[in-house]
Design a protein around this nucleic acid. Structure first.
Lengths: 348, 348
DNA sequence: ATAACCAAAGTGATCGTTAACATCACTCGG
DNA sequence: CCGAGTGATGTTAACGATCACTTTGGTTAT
């Protein structure tokens, strides 16, 4: 086994180049106040020793902060995963590093647990606040270090514009659009298979999927059926949607995300109901697979990646006031009409 | 805006508790050499100031290493994503922190780029080496700091047992099992829609999906058709698989993963070929959605999460020799027969 | 009574880096 | 020809923790 010879430090480089360690630091950080000849000597020494700066020491010493921690509950959901990708890309282009810490929905983290996940007090943090653990974490961080946190979640344009630490998209509006579309197709009403966050005491906003759906139905003077609560997994959705699918009076279902829609599609198929002839199904998120189901899912596209990017930009501003606040923006949801939706009772 | 009052350090706690900073350190790290009364005083001070130890400073000072960096190329693939989850869970249970750094398949990272992603020299690293960028990164790390890296990828049991830094699963064996199954069903031969890593100069191992497939065909004395290369995305797969799907002589396709299988299923449907009547399709990975497609995908289950856990355990051993090396193990692939496979030319 | 020992706590160096300030050698204007 | 400015470097002090010693008292064995 090779001797793990210790990594070269800035001092080793300085010694080899015959300069002070500070000069090396200047070269590494691209300070203009270094003579070209000196710079070359240092660069040479760096190459020879294979020196690489130690980020830990750097941020300890009070150099500009250059890491973000992302708190998220479920990386297997498309939304958070895509947002994370957006954050990562944005961060990497500025050479920041990204930590992720997964909040387990199963165990109840104490506030201290959540705090303990941060590598240091004041660590810049982005929270995916689209479910219960995420909301908890958001609250804890808000109480602890509001100046170094940003939360991603479903919010209306007004909420986003008003809050200095929110980024998100208006799920309620997107759901409204989808619901309106189904109504225009001629359905008497639209049923809703809801993701966990859209139900119970959790909601109450105007930006949740279930809320947008209910609003449109009310505005149109239609019956608002009870939303059917589902878990996050496809298996749970499959089970939850059974009563809806086996009821011939149900002609349209808006699903909380594409996974739930897939489960619904499957359930409908097994129940012998034609889609979209007997039953229209609309999903949410435009998950990559959604264009390739049979029939292909009608769904609402959400640009999560750009939300992630936005969150990172906002965080930079929050952490360093000299960086201008990015204009609050949110991607417009876009209804993508494919094959699972149509007029009710169509003989397709 | 609240004054970002600086976070409390170990010295602040020491002052408040009327002890030395070292004593605080002892309390925080649970040293037995502290009088109960003193400990209480310190604990009280910690609570009052909301002190939390700074991880950066801690590992700078030479405390035990407590972070892993994961290098991966594509977090949207089910495999890497699940493995990452396994790593994260294992790491968190030991209070390690996890960094991720995404290797962009698009741009060609220089070796220095890859190295620069690590927060410090010698940073423990896990590499998802299942595609080209991952393989590159693996090589770079292997040259740079072999004692602090572990790679996850497709390897045979022998390879895994022989190498001190490999973790993985035998994709070749899994593919062989699936191919054998299709042959037993009565298909003359099996075609293969291959993920990028299974083709070209990349392969050559015995543990790749395409290799296991080809081996079984050869052993059975069957014709070995050219594998059809596909990209990672469903859209690419859909395009690539067209010729296969429109050729009535093709009765069975083994797909490199479930996304490709979904594309194949869709393409077959559009081409008017009945599945599994005219065409059998087998996927790979048992991605969550695969049980809910119509018809439900026959696929090969792979326990990525446990591979992730294994990688983390192995890494701990590599970084700290006093931790025993975990027994090399790899999850057994399991063929899950659902609805997309059957005998050829069945009148279903 | 005294050396030896031990637990409890303190002191100072150290990790790798940056910030702030100090120094030095020139150049330039008056 | 001198003081001011300036550009290139060096010096010292953090940052927040741990590690390896040292000091301080009080017990115990001789």
């Amino acid at each position: 086994m090779a001797q793990p010879k210790k990594a070269a430090s800035i001092w080793d480089v300085a010694r080899l180049a015959g300069v002070s360690h500070q000069t090396v630091s200047r070269v590494v950080n691209g300070s203009p106040r270094v003579a070209a000849a000196t710079r070359d000597k240092v660069l040479e020494a760096i190459a020879e020793l294979g020196y690489r700066p130690n980020r830990l020491a750097r941020s300890l010493a009070g150099g500009a902060v250059e890491s973000v921690t992302v708190l998220t509950a479920d990386t297997s959901l498309y939304g958070p995963e895509a947002a994370l990708r957006g954050i990562e890309k944005a961060a990497r282009s500025l050479d920041w590093s990204v930590q992720i810490s997964v909040l387990d929905p199963a165990d109840t983290h104490s506030d201290a647990d959540i705090i303990a996940r941060l590598p240091r007090a004041g660590e810049p943090t982005i929270i995916m606040a689209h479910d219960e653990p995420g909301m908890r974490a958001k609250q804890v961080l808000l109480d602890t270090q509001p100046q170094a946190m940003v939360a991603i979640g479903p919010y209306t344009a007004e909420e986003l514009a008003a809050s200095p630490w929110l980024v998100g998209m208006d799920d309620g509006k997107a759901a409204a659009e989808a619901t309106r579309y189904l109504l225009e197709l001629g359905h008497d009403t639209v049923h809703h298979l809801a993701i966990p966050t859209s139900t119970g005491t959790f909601g109450g906003g105007k930006a949740h999927r279930a809320d947008g759906w209910a609003r449109v139905l009310r505005e149109a003077g239609r019956e608002v059926p009870d939303p059917v609560p589902s878990g996050w997994t496809i298996a749970e959705a499959f089970k939850a949607v059974q009563p809806l699918v086996s009821d011939p009076a149900v002609t349209a279902i808006l699903c909380g995300n594409d996974h739930l829609a897939l489960a619904t599609l499957r359930a409908a198929h097994l129940a012998g109901r034609k889609v979209p002839g007997d039953l229209s199904i609309v999903g949410f998120d435009n998950t990559p697979f959604s264009a390739y189901t049979t029939p292909a899912l009608t769904t609402v596209n959400q640009d999560f990646e750009s939300v992630g990017r936005g969150a990172f930009e906002l965080l930079r501003h929050r952490v360093d006031a000299s960086i201008p606040r990015p204009k609050p923006s949110w991607p417009e949801p876009e209804l993508i009409i494919r094959e699972t939706s149509g007029p009710p009772f169509a003989r397709s």
